[in-house]
Design a protein around this nucleic acid. Structure first.
Length: 258
DNA sequence: ATGGTAGCACGGCTA
């Protein structure tokens, strides 16, 4: 089965583009981030007409996450229900295909001297505490999404330039180390050759200059990680498609053995 | 060169 995570940067602006993607790639599970719309604005038929079940956690204007699956979805949980999340729609957990999926849109952090950066660190502390309570290595979990951390120097186009910048800051790397310390592991890093970016800024021709970052991830416990057969970022989905503007993220596609 | 582009929504914030 094919599992995809993709920050679409507005589901309203990207609806037609996402439709083309679903027809071409036909994922079994799709976790999307940055809906940028209220729940009632979500174009449900985009997914239901293609046979998907849907779970949504949305808010007006910003953030928002959703999980679409070809199989029924149960045990939906929207949000961490902690102060760290601060009322923003960034976390959605749901069970489908026998796997507990957690769809994440983690804060970007803006600048280290802005209030957004301590908020990002607090968010991770809350997320890690919440995951620690539930995740056990023998249970099938997949934690995926725009985590907004480039874990290794080879995951960012200029690690020196970003040495003290959100996405590649030591305080974030400390959180990443915790995130993969209680059963979850990065299923991508050791299966692909760097550089393996998932995001390229719209500004400055970053995509064509190959100035990207690997900030979209899939972390999994062994029952899921052991099933991974293929990992790819099809970069064509970061390009214009029939005149439609792409997201600034490409989808991360992970194939699991049935 | 403290820029650049995109989206939301119509000024300024967020990424």
């Amino acid at each position: 089965m094919k599992v995809v995570t993709w920050n679409v940067n507005s589901l309203n602006a990207r609806a037609d583009y996402v439709g083309h993607f679903l027809d071409a790639v036909d994922p079994d599970v799709l976790a999307i981030q940055e809906l940028k719309m209220t729940e009632d604005q979500v174009p449900r038929e985009l997914f239901t007409s293609r046979g998907y079940h849907l779970a949504i956690h949305a808010q007006p204007r910003w953030n928002g996450v959703a999980i679409a699956s070809k199989a029924p979805i149960t045990d939906v949980m929207a949000g961490l229900a902690t102060a760290e999340e601060d009322g923003e729609a960034r976390v959605l957990a749901a069970t489908t295909f026998g796997i507990r999926f957690v769809d994440l849109y983690c804060p970007q952090g803006q600048a280290v001297d802005s209030p957004k950066f301590p908020y990002k660190l607090r968010f991770f502390d809350g997320l890690i505490a919440w995951l620690r309570e539930q995740v056990t290595p023998d249970a099938p979990w997949a934690v995926l999404g725009d985590i907004n951390i480039a874990p290794r120097p080879e995951d960012i186009w200029d690690p020196k330039r970003f040495a003290n910048v959100p996405s590649f800051h030591p305080d974030e790397h400390a959180r990443w180390a915790e995130l993969v310390s209680f059963g979850l592991s990065d299923v991508v890093a050791d299966r692909v050759e760097a550089p393996f970016y998932t995001f390229w800024d719209y500004r400055g021709g970053a995509f064509h200059r190959k100035q990207g970052m690997r900030i979209d991830h899939l972390l999994a416990t062994p029952p899921v990680a052991d099933r991974v057969t293929e990992v790819e970022v099809p970069r064509d989905w970061r390009k214009k498609y029939e005149g439609l503007t792409p997201s600034d993220h490409a989808p991360l596609v992970v194939t699991l053995a049935d």
